[in-house]
């Protein structure tokens, strides 16, 4: 568990654990990731990534889908997705 980054394998199926949810707030017109004693503002890209973390889609499939959605470079997307998921997993806000 010390090197979380290496555990984000391409076949892992990331999922928001119970007690962590993505919420759109109409009062501020923004998205937030809500977790125990945490309120984290989620930008558009984070929202697109997190919405796809349903415990069914693999990391590979999520990256493919995002690359298509944004018509962007797959390798760059993969780096961004892995970084976000690893960061959240270290805070127990993502199950891998």
């Amino acid at each position: 568990m010390t090197d979380v980054v290496t555990t984000v394998g391409s076949g892992s199926r990331p999922r928001l654990p119970r007690g962590v949810r993505l919420k759109h707030d109409p009062a501020r017109g923004e998205w937030f990731l809500l977790a125990p004693e945490r309120v984290v503002k989620a930008d558009n890209i984070a929202v697109e990534i997190l919405r796809r973390c349903d415990g069914t889609a693999t990391l590979d499939a999520i990256v493919d889908d995002l690359a298509q959605h944004f018509s962007a470079d797959r390798a760059r997307i993969q780096t961004d997705v892995k970084a976000l998921l690893a960061e959240l997993a270290a805070k127990r806000m993502m199950d891998l």
Binding site: T2, V4, P36, E37, R92
Partner: peptide
């Protein structure tokens, strides 16, 4: 540091 990923310590 040691428990990062296992438990969040505030």
């Amino acid at each position: 540091q040691k428990l990062s990923g296992t438990i969040v310590i505030d």
